[in-house]
Write a protein that binds this DNA or RNA. Structure first.
Lengths: 210, 210
DNA sequence: AACAAGTTTAACTAAACAGTTAGTTTTACT
DNA sequence: AGTAAAACTAACTGTTTAGTTAAACTTGTT
């Protein structure tokens, strides 16, 4: 039988590996990530990755599930069905920005996954995305039915919000690296919850309200 | 002296290399791209890349300049300064979507560059982006000064539009691959100019108009 | 035709890489 | 204390990769 302390040691090693892997995959992408570098970052022997988790693909799938799967679940479970469509749409933008700030690796990993056409995206994760898209679609259709929202293509709204937030946050390293960018851009940070979220909420609601 | 026909032969080889490289870099990213695969795709000997252009980094920089630099220039030169801020903002969205459709490699390459924090982004290309951001900023500030637009953070509008368009277009392979996505999403294509552009123009203008 | 400059090729090298293995230490349980 | 399973380590292997080189071919010029 496996005792508690052995279990916790195992879990600790796995946690170190997954944290390091998420960081390296976010920085360098699947192809750019080096197993030796992940091991070094995690301060464990490289063979431990193969022992506890598996090869590079298995490790990547695990990282995706860890980061995206949990976020998606949290997202949907916390939506209050009794709120108005306006409030729900605000909730979505607010929850999205907070999730992105809480896990800064989400934006780069999602962007890379999209750029590669989802070559390494497990179907379960695609299902998580589908749930969120369905949620936003319902909010917008409910609003249109109630006559508070204009008729829109929900996926376009979803794209503007999700893509916009990812773009804003993801552009931070580039914005801050190069001196060529204008000062009004250079003074912005990488935080999207808070003021940025408020402004996006206002803009999007103004756009869709009847 | 270098004659016409030698020159055209040289140019032809370089063109083959750059076209192949753009495709492979878009599909696989900088780290994922293989010099042998680019050579095979271009139907030339791998040594020709090093002879005519240089190493992998130089090739990537050349591809970026070819795709982004030209687009950015075209963008700014075609803006009609005599138009109203509303018309200019519409022009920007319209030009962006047409550029994205004309060059399908732009979206994935830009997304990867952002995800990597611009690790391989030459400063000249960053300057091209800065010009476009400056253009959008001017349009929005001009509109606000004239009292036709509300006061906004221009870079947020820029992010919503650019990120939104890239997200919509970039998500096409994932949307069409997996059966889990709802039908209202599955029926959408990857084209962003035309109907998608019109709807984004309407939404964004509605959002920023006083 | 002879030459030189530009272009192309196939074969090569050295380094980096994912993944393995045999042997060692740690842990939990009796 | 003894033991067996689990966790770990260092050194290794075979392959893939970016980049090179020397020799051959092509083209324009005299």
């Amino acid at each position: 039988m496996v005792s508690k302390s052995v279990e916790s040691k195992r879990e600790k090693t796995i946690r170190r590996i997954l944290d390091a892997a998420a960081k390296i995959f976010a920085e360098s992408g699947f192809e750019g990530a080096r197993m030796d570098e992940i091991a070094k970052q995690a301060k464990i022997n490289k063979a431990m990755i193969y022992y506890h988790i598996g090869d590079k693909k298995a490790l990547y799938a695990q990282v995706l599930h860890d980061i995206i799967g949990n976020a998606a679940e949290h997202f949907i479970n916390n939506l209050d069905e009794n709120q108005s469509p306006e409030q729900k749409l605000k909730y979505y933008i607010n929850a999205l920005t907070r999730t992105m700030d809480q896990n800064p690796l989400l934006a780069p990993i999602m962007m890379r996954e999209q750029a590669s056409g989802g070559q390494n995206l497990p179907e379960i994760i695609a299902g998580d995305f589908a749930l969120i898209i369905g949620m936003v679609t319902n909010i917008l259709e409910e609003g249109a039915k109630q006559g508070v929202f204009i008729k829109t293509t929900p996926f376009i709204i979803y794209s503007l919000v999700t893509g916009g937030v990812m773009f804003y946050k993801g552009s931070y390293p580039v914005r801050s690296r190069y001196a060529v960018f204008p000062e009004n851009v250079k003074k912005l940070g990488d935080r999207v919850s808070g003021e940025v979220s408020s402004e996006i909420e206002k803009l999007i609601l103004k756009a869709v309200k009847k």
